[in-house]
Amino acid sequence: CSEYQKALKSEDIAVKFKLGTELYDAGKYGKANRLFAQIVPGYRGKPQAEKLMFMYSNSFYMMKDYYLAAYQFERFEDAYSNSEKAEEALFLSTKSYYNLSPVYSKEQKETKEAIEKLQLFINKYPESQYLAEANSMIKELDYKLEKKAFEIAKQYNKIANFESADYEASIKSFDLFLLEYPGTTFREEAMYYRLDSAYNLAVNSIKSKKEGRLNSAITYYKSFAKAYPNSKHKETADAMNAELTAQLSQLSI
């Protein structure tokens, strides 16, 4: 019987606490976590509880069980708001939320939650040493949400060959995207693809709708050219504009 097994079966919470702390310090978080889980109720209200709860929470974090880590750290910060570890705990809690955020192409419930929690952290500890990291996490998560919306709109542009109604969906999605994320890093790309969709919609249009569509595509070109005069897409955009203008003048003949 190893020491660990003995401690697990032991009735003495002090033994568990001692060995748990040793294991924790040695980086064996899984084993430490099991011991801590047994003694958390026993230490409730006792002075050691503060240290124990922090180690307990952190062991979840280290085991990458971020759901529980986020919850336990939040509880810690709530219960020991005067603790010197409170700030760190809340930060680690937000970081757990951050780690739960999935790839942009899946549901972003956790991402939004993480942004919310990070914002709360920044509001509560505006002088925090973790501020820079928190800000960069928010930035990264925001980027994720932008990327998601951008990719969805771009997909309408991509699959539009199959159903031309999708060009309209693409234009509308980019419109909504630019409205919702005015400062997005995808702004240039979004404006370009919006132009591309409008261009394709216009040149493949039926006669009765052609003039209006050509005009609106030219408007999209103008706003793109104005915003990004040095864009890498400039050449293609200029060519589209030339074609659009040519077709428009042909119509008016």
Partner: peptide
């Protein structure tokens, strides 16, 4: 919402209701 496994592009391409429609 709710697609915690399936990627967006797999679902959105199947939707028959599109923005602006």
């Amino acid at each position: 919402v709710g697609n915690d496994k399936t990627n967006d592009h797999v679902i959105y391409r199947e939707l028959r209701t599109r923005p602006g429609q």
